[in-house]
């Protein structure tokens, strides 16, 4: 009974979101739409990192690397041949890539798959490492990806990056992928396979004693996370229409990590909430870096201030509310209804 009610409410929520997006598209300006798009992409990225770190306990700092792979692969598939010829000034694009073309959906999927393959490739060696060493090794991987992207001019156009990427990633694609990611990961972590991942996170030794092939499960989780990170990168590339290696600095991973930590490790609803709040906050904080003129009074912008406030916020969270907004709990329909009922009863009294 509860299950069917949950299902109906889920459908209603998705419909409501659809309606909101439809309204937003007609009524909000381009800047606000852009923020809405970024919210969706950041949620995808944070959900995937939460799967890896929050649910499986693998401290990975390689997200920027997977995003870069997804972004480059999908962009090369959707860039028109003429555009490719125009932007590859240092070295022409290598052959099959120079003519290869794919529809947007396929390109994003390919970006995700490529990232997942890289995830698989590096996971076999690095996942034998635990804790902080894994973090450093994956960070190393992301840096290697960036350095390679900077040098492999025949594929990535080197430091110049790719420009004029078709802007296919509209609000529908982004939120479509976002919902798919949420659905997929939620189903995964709420299944017994998800229980197994959590077991590995909580006590790896006990998990092994329970007959769980720990390395295999970690590889699966890591690769799925890499897939969605690649998808997020692909969407991001099409949304921004230009990418270059500098975009995929460690800072990018830091932003995603911040969302996951703030939302709560091992909480999907926390990630969604934090994804919205932090993305909006980050955009809103841009104003502290822009010069403001009030009447004849001129306040110059303070470059760097945005990240100062942002990193201080992370420090506050980690020092004073380590479990984030939600801890490991989730907001469920049953929970909401329960709270409403209790409140209703109180009001009646």
């Amino acid at each position: 009974m509860y299950e069917s009610r949950t299902k109906r409410l889920n459908v209603a929520a998705v419909a409501l979101l659809g309606f909101f997006l439809w309204w937003a598209q007609g009524n909000l300006d381009g800047y606000k739409i852009q923020i809405l798009n970024l919210v969706a992409i950041n949620i995808i990225l944070a959900l995937s990192l939460n799967l890896i770190y929050g649910f499986t306990g693998l401290f990975s700092l390689g997200h920027a690397g997977f995003m870069a792979i997804g972004a480059y692969v999908s962009s090369l598939l959707i860039l028109p041949a003429a555009q490719k010829e125009m932007i590859f000034l240092l070295e022409p694009l290598v052959w099959p890539l120079s003519v290869l073309q794919a529809p947007f959906f396929v390109a994003v999927l390919a970006g995700g798959v490529a990232a997942a393959l890289f995830g698989l490739l590096i996971s076999l060696p690095v996942l034998r490492l635990g804790g902080d060493y894994l973090g450093i090794a994956t960070l190393g991987f992301a840096e290697i990806v960036r350095v390679v992207a900077n040098n492999l001019s025949g594929i990535t156009n080197g430091a110049l990056g790719l420009k004029g990427i078709p802007n296919h990633a509209n609000i529908w694609w982004n939120y479509g992928w976002c919902l798919f990611t949420l659905y997929f990961i939620a189903r995964l972590v709420n299944s017994n396979f998800g229980n197994v991942l959590k077991a590995i996170r909580d006590d790896e030794t006990a998990a092994r004693a329970m007959g769980i092939d720990v390395l295999r499960c970690k590889v699966v989780s890591f690769s799925i996370g890499a897939f969605f990170a690649g998808v997020g990168g692909a969407l991001m590339a099409s949304l921004l229409t230009t990418i270059d290696p500098k975009m995929f600095l460690f800072l990018l991973t830091f932003n995603v990590l911040m969302i996951v930590v703030a939302g709560g490790l091992g909480s999907l609803s926390g990630t969604v909430i934090a994804g919205v709040v932090i993305t909006v906050l980050l955009e809103w904080l841009r104003f502290v870096e822009n010069p403001v003129t009030i009447g004849s009074f001129h306040i110059p912008g303070i470059p760097g201030m945005r990240m100062v406030i942002f990193s201080m916020a992370l420090l506050f969270i980690i020092l004073f509310r380590r479990e984030g907004i939600m801890g490991m709990r989730e907001i469920t329909w049953n929970g909401i209804i329960g709270v409403c009922r209790r409140k209703g009863e109180k009001d009646r009294d």
Binding site: L257, V308, I318
Partner: peptide, 26 residues
Amino acid sequence: LREAPRISALISSIGVSFFIQNLSIV
């Protein structure tokens, strides 16, 4: 964070790193 899980202090140090960098820009 001495009593907290080890990764917490690591995340804290990442935060400090970005804080120092950007405070220096400021």
